[in-house]
Simulated scan of single mutants.
Amino acid sequence: MMGALDGLRILDLSRILAGPTATQLLGDFGADIIKVERPGLGDDTRAWGPPFVEGGDGPTQESAYYLCANRNKRSIAVDIAKPEGAQTVRELLATCDVLVENFKPGGLDKYGLSYSDLKEQFPRLVYCSISGFGQTGPNSEKPGYDLLAQAYGGIMSLTGEPEGEPMKVAVGIADVMTGMYASNAILAALRHRDKMDEGQHIDIALVDCQIAWLINEGTNYLTSKILPQRRGNQHPNIVPYQVFEMADGHAVVAVGNDAQFERFCTLIRREELASDPKYVTNAGRLVNREALIATLTETLSKLERDWLISGMEANKIPGGPINQLDDVFASDQVAAREMKITMPHSGAASGEVDLIGNPVKFSKTPVTYRRAPPTCGADTDDILAELAATQKE
Rank of each mutant, 00 (worst) to 15 (best):
A4N: 08
L5E: 08
R9F: 04
T21N: 12
L25N: 13
L26Y: 00
A31C: 03
I34F: 06
A47Q: 15
F52D: 01
P59T: 05
P59A: 13
T60S: 08
T60H: 11
A69D: 11
S75E: 09
A77G: 13
P83R: 11
T88S: 15
L92A: 13
A94W: 07
C96M: 14
D97P: 05
V98D: 09
N102Y: 04
P105S: 15
L108M: 11
D109Q: 12
S114K: 13
Y115F: 10
Y115M: 12
Y127G: 12
I130H: 04
G132S: 05
G132P: 02
Q135V: 09
E141M: 15
K142H: 10
G144E: 03
A149G: 02
S157T: 00
T159V: 02
E161P: 04
V176G: 05
M177N: 09
A182T: 14
I186P: 06
R191F: 09
E217T: 09
Y221A: 12
T223E: 09
R230S: 02
G232W: 02
Q234F: 08
N237Y: 07
P240Y: 00
G256P: 00
G256M: 03
F261G: 01
L273N: 04
L273C: 01
L273A: 07
A274I: 02
P277M: 09
K278E: 07
T281H: 05
L286V: 11
R289K: 15
R289C: 04
E290F: 08
I309K: 04
S310D: 15
G311L: 09
E313I: 13
E313D: 15
I317E: 01
G320Y: 06
I322S: 07
N323P: 12
S331V: 08
S331T: 06
D332I: 07
A336P: 06
M339N: 10
E352Q: 13
V353G: 00
P359W: 01
F362L: 14
T365W: 08
V367T: 13
I383G: 08
L384I: 06
A388G: 10
T390P: 06
